[in-house]
Design a binder for these strands. Structure first.
Length: 211
DNA sequence: CCGAGGATTATCT
DNA sequence: GATAATCCTCGGA
């Protein structure tokens, strides 16, 4: 093994067991990695996240008792919570907080780093800026599917994990309301629980582009 | 460039 | 029966 080979080091369960807002903030700059069944490696820098706590958060699927859909949020930290919405789209979340506490972080946007040819093949006739600049888009580009729900993302065995990479300093982080909540009442509608990297072109256009 | 409206279906009430 | 943590197309400026 050459010394220059990257050794995969997924973020451990103890990272995801932290408070959800802390996890959402600290995931900025980390690297989302996907190894396809054929062996191709895709990765991207996480540039936008949203925190969904359970219990008191009326915007979160975790606000309800366990159901068929939200059950993974009650499970151990570091597992994937992948759900279907709007009749067409899958969303990738990572479960946070200790087991039994229903919370997760939604991965909303990444900046492509590896596997650009694979992403291009999945997004024909779309420019690179539209491959991963939204939660449903990045799931498509990375070949993530609904049957990967509950994958353990703290090991490499499931072909999906997050590695530490760059750290984003506080003065490059922006926060704002979560996107797409529509009928959620205040104060949850306006809580600044969306985090993104200031000025990064791959941040979604979901709630304005002020950066 | 920008905003409005439609698509499309699993899950929940 | 209604809703949805979205995306895309289209029409107007």
């Amino acid at each position: 093994m050459a010394t220059s080979d990257r050794v995969p080091t997924p973020l451990p369960p103890s990272f995801y067991a932290q408070p959800t807002l802390t996890v959402a903030r600290r995931l900025l700059g980390a690297r989302l990695v996907r190894v396809l069944p054929g062996g191709a490696r895709l990765s991207g820098r996480i540039v936008e996240t949203e925190a969904y706590t359970g219990l008191d958060d009326l915007a979160s699927h975790g606000r309800r008792k366990p159901t068929k859909r939200n059950a993974p949020m009650y499970g151990p930290p570091g597992r994937a919570y992948i759900y279907f919405t709007y009749g067409n789209y899958w969303m990738l979340n990572i479960v946070t907080e200790p087991e039994g506490d229903p919370a997760a972080v939604l991965i909303r946007a990444v900046e492509p780093l590896e596997g650009l040819d694979e992403m291009a093949a999945r997004r024909p006739d779309r420019p690179p800026l539209e491959w991963t600049s939204g939660p449903a888009k990045l799931v498509l580009a990375f070949g993530i599917t609904g049957d990967m729900n509950t994958t353990d993302m703290t090991t490499t065995g499931g072909g999906l994990w997050i590695e530490p990479d760059e750290s984003v300093p506080d003065d490059r982080v922006r926060t704002g309301p979560r996107v797409g909540l529509n009928t959620t009442p205040e104060p949850w509608l306006s809580l600044p629980w969306r985090f993104w990297v200031a000025g990064n072109h791959y941040v979604s256009k979901g709630s304005g582009r002020k950066q």
